[in-house]
Amino acid sequence: MANAEPFELIDEAPRRARNVLARRLTDIVGLPSSRLTPRERWIVADLLYDILRASDVPVRQRCARRLAGLLEAPGRLLRVLACDRYEIAQPILEESRALTDFDLLEIVQSGSLQHRMAIARRENISEIISAALVAAGEAPVVECVLKNQTTALAAPTLDRLVGAAQDEMRYARLLIRRPELRPSQAFRLFWDCEHPERVQILERFAVDRTILIDSTEDIFPMVSAEDGDDPLVTRVLRYIDRRQRNREAAELSPYGSLEGAIDAFAAEGGQAVIVEEIATLAAIHKRLLLRMMDDMAGEPLAILCKATGLKWPSFHGLWTGLGRHVQDESVELARKVHDSLSVEKAQTVLRYWNLSVEDGDKR
């Protein structure tokens, strides 16, 4: 940012004439455009710049407050005050509409935490500035950005924050309320949330697929006629299909069905061969199933049961097979999730998770 370095006072000794002159020049530079031409404003601003370099804090504060609401504020003067100590820069950083994204970006990169907090409180922050604020990695600034509902957040910034939520639970609670959050991001965020936030995610993003199913019903026979040669179509239809279970695998399974495999899991524990069979019968990746089993809260397994049409006793079979007690608060909360979701909504969540695992394999 050209000519935006903080003031280095030449002389801090109080000078009455100097301070009065600074106030007069500030009043002139703040006149509306109907009374002052741009050229006159630039000249006055250049004179004021030199005076302010030798003025005390109250004089600079007064000038900053005056310029904060001025759309025609001279850029050089505005930028240097915005880079000044925080108590001077604050009104400009929070209110000035004359600062450009370029100006703000430079202040984000060179200013203090307080400067970044002030910028985060601005109205209508652009995606570029919000990305720079988030990139700084300061939790108070990030929280301020997320609480500011006028801030625009780009998809890559949200992805970064969803990843950071694993270590900062406060981010998760704020991200759930953001209108920009997409289903794929929300279902990634799910794993790092507590029960109340998980319920919010499900209420907002676990939608049914009625329109998709009705609109694509005739495509399934087309794919069968083509022997499923198009992997892209197959991938999309796996998300849409009404069926969740792998019926062909059930015909070949030594356990006869998904319920039979879960009964064996409850009786024999988490043997790798049984886990593999449950994943195959449920038509999900084994890594996804293992992640669901590792989750101590139980909601993912409840979603698995609902999506595959399993009755609640099958959840108990999975839970006890993992060596856990059914008389547990987590089981009660998981039951509420199971009962609150329709089969289609549970399938939506499960399939997003499964596609996410597939996408991870491709990277």
Results as ranks from 00 to 15, higher is better:
His338Asn: 10
Ala54Gly: 02
Gln200Asn: 01
Pro183Glu: 10
Leu161Glu: 07
Gln347Val: 07
Arg198His: 04
Arg41Ala: 11
Arg335Met: 12
Leu36Val: 13
Ala152Tyr: 06
Ala225Ile: 12
Val223Leu: 15
Thr100His: 04
Ile219Met: 11
Phe205Cys: 01
Leu212Asn: 01
Glu358Thr: 09
Leu105Thr: 00
Val223Lys: 08
Tyr86Gln: 08
Leu99Ser: 04
Gly75Val: 13
Gln90Leu: 13
Gly75Lys: 11
Glu344Leu: 14
Asp227Val: 15
Thr37Gln: 05
Phe315Ser: 03
Asp11Phe: 09
Leu70Met: 08
Leu289Val: 10
Leu70Arg: 09
Leu48Met: 03
Asp229Tyr: 10
Leu21Asn: 03
Ala346Cys: 07
Glu40Arg: 12
Thr234Asn: 14
Glu344Ser: 13
Val141Ile: 15
Asp167Phe: 13
Arg160Gln: 15
Arg247Lys: 04
Gln200Thr: 03
Asp56Ala: 12
Arg97His: 12
Leu48Asn: 00
Arg235Ala: 12
Arg245Glu: 09
Ala334Phe: 14
Pro32Glu: 08
Val236Trp: 04
Cys305Met: 07
Asn19Gly: 05
Ile125Pro: 01
Leu25Asn: 02
Leu304Asn: 01
Leu133Tyr: 04
Glu217Val: 15
Ser224Ala: 15
Pro300Tyr: 13
Leu78Trp: 07
Glu197Val: 09
Ala82Thr: 07
Leu355Arg: 06
Leu104Gln: 03
Leu25Thr: 00
Tyr239Ile: 14
Gln166Val: 10
Glu248Gln: 12
His316Gln: 09
Leu252Arg: 14
Gln347Lys: 15
Ser253Arg: 08
Glu8Tyr: 08
Glu143Gly: 06
Ala64Met: 09
Gly323Trp: 08
Ser55Ile: 10
Glu194Ile: 08
Trp353Lys: 03
Met293Asn: 04
Lys311Arg: 14
Lys311Glu: 15
Leu47Val: 01
Ser215Pro: 00
Ser126Leu: 06
Asp230Ser: 14
Leu77His: 02
Ala82Asp: 04
Ala346His: 11
Arg24Trp: 09
Leu181Thr: 02
Ala250His: 00
Arg35His: 09
Val108Gly: 00
Ala272Ser: 11
Arg335Thr: 07
Phe205Gly: 00
Leu113Cys: 03
Val44Trp: 06
Phe190Pro: 01
Lys362Asp: 11
Arg15Ala: 09
Ala4Phe: 09
Asn148Ala: 04
Leu104His: 03
Leu31Ala: 05
Asp27Ile: 02
Glu251Lys: 14
